[in-house]
Design a protein around this nucleic acid. Structure first.
Lengths: 261, 261
DNA sequence: ATGAGCCCCTAACACCGTTAGGGGCTGGTT
DNA sequence: AACCAGCCCCTAACGGTGTTAGGGGCTCAT
């Protein structure tokens, strides 16, 4: 009942009218539309999957992931909820589109400096991408489904890694290391520290409250937590991120022969 | 044992009748229950927050995070949904409890070998913890809210890091690096590669399908993706994880004076 | 006996994802 | 001209969700 379903799979082609058959664009990279509305009322906006993705992006920005519903996205494009199912198999697929729409605004760092500088740029940009779009980290979280835009980034990153001297296998593995870390980090840095967020509670207030809680722990069982309370609650998350990224870069450097650094 | 609780931040005590006022245990560490049901029908299970967490854990295992509803958790403990709100402010708080319940089954690696070996153990154990409990990674994802069990782990990890020779600040930052990475990695490794999962589609089938898709990309625009298709789709995720962890450990090693390695 | 606090209940609200079925509107074929 | 096929949207409804209001017992200390 709840999920299951999947009844569809490809089969079940009872050819019944109601069943979704092809849907517009299923292709990954190639353009799908036959042409574009040859004549007649040329201005008709023509609801596309792209338009859906943009609408979803707007709703996400306004209401957050929890507030993103089919009905709202439909309203955003001026139709009713059920109509979306002509363009999209289900909400999950809409989220895939949304995921790609988020990735669309990413662009690789400039091609200057050594490999460290460039990879560093990738990490920091990836982080800001996930932070700038509301709830982007959560959207991306359980979603590998590579949209075309991510392909471009991946391609570019691999290119630089190989050029830096990394082996094929190492280059490929490195992309996973970087993306896993950045994703995990942003997820953590954006999650509310305590229930006392979302209300007023300025960031700094919450942080120092957490720090006090650390300090208030029983010293005999949690000596380190008490002692390192200040370090654990370093309020500048950029410092944290920088530390982590530099450590990862150091680790990657050991893969290269010393002369390439 | 650790009855616990965290939570609440006391305020809001308007003392009005209908409003949830205190809830059972609000104390931080001390035991709350006055005693335990002195006489009479001694066997009454007495619905506790702990029991709720266990019930939620069972529902999670059975139906996954998407299928975890207040009503089901309530049914699991033999009450109706509305009754849960006496013990818990809302679903979010229940998820915090669930989070801690998941963490409860974690235990630190043995204290043998050098610091690398021990940190490695932490990473691999953390990963299996998140993989063994269904949807655990997603539950933990947007949830810092440190349950008492996580405190224990953190304390232990910090202790080993300092003993290894890391400075206070470095030790603290390292815990974030490790947990961010592991969390991000498991999130990625568990997310379905394509829509063609969840159905039949053995893992290997899907992997090789994805590999073929990489290879089928236009070579002139995605030369690296095409070329590294095999490396990018390495099916053994342990290999990936190992690479990432070792790189991070290498990076951490550079913080130590050479003689401590 | 009274009241306070605990703990659960029934009903209901508004909203969710999703499906069934239908109805126009278009363009091509017979 | 008539027809059909496909596109694209609609209304209505199903079963489910989190959450609140209000009430009712049941146990205790006064």
């Amino acid at each position: 009942m709840p999920e299951n379903d999947t009844t569809t799979t490809p089969g079940t082609g009872t050819a019944g009218p109601g069943s979704r058959s092809t849907g517009p664009g299923t292709g990954s990279t190639g353009p799908e539309r036959p042409a574009d509305t040859p004549g007649s009322t040329a201005a008709a906006p023509a609801l596309t999957r792209e338009a859906l993705a943009q609408a979803a992006l707007r709703v996400l920005e306004r209401d957050g992931l929890a507030g993103l519903s089919m009905r709202k996205v439909a309203a955003e494009v001026g139709v009713k909820a059920a109509s979306l199912y002509w363009h999209v198999r289900n909400k999950e697929e809409l989220l895939d589109l949304l995921n790609d729409a988020i990735m669309a605004s990413a662009e690789p760092p400039p091609r200057e400096g050594d490999w460290r500088e460039q990879l560093r740029g990738y990490c920091w940009r990836h982080r800001s991408l996930l932070r700038d779009n509301r709830d982007a980290a959560k959207v991306v979280a359980g979603r590998l489904a590579p949209g075309p835009h991510l392909f471009g980034l991946l391609e570019d990153q691999l290119d630089r890694l190989r050029e830096a001297g990394f082996s094929d296998a190492h280059a490929a593995l490195t992309t996973y290391l970087l993306s896993s870390f950045v994703q995990g980090f942003v997820l953590q840095e954006q999650s509310p520290l305590s229930a006392a967020e979302a209300d007023g509670a300025s960031r700094l207030e919450v942080v120092s409250a957490v720090r006090d809680r650390f300090r208030a722990l029983p010293v005999e069982t949690f000596p380190n937590l008490v002692d390192l309370a200040a370090d654990l609650t370093e309020p500048d998350l950029d410092v944290r991120f920088e530390f982590c990224v530099e450590r990862i870069l150091d680790g990657l450097a050991t893969l290269l022969p010393p002369e390439r650094r």
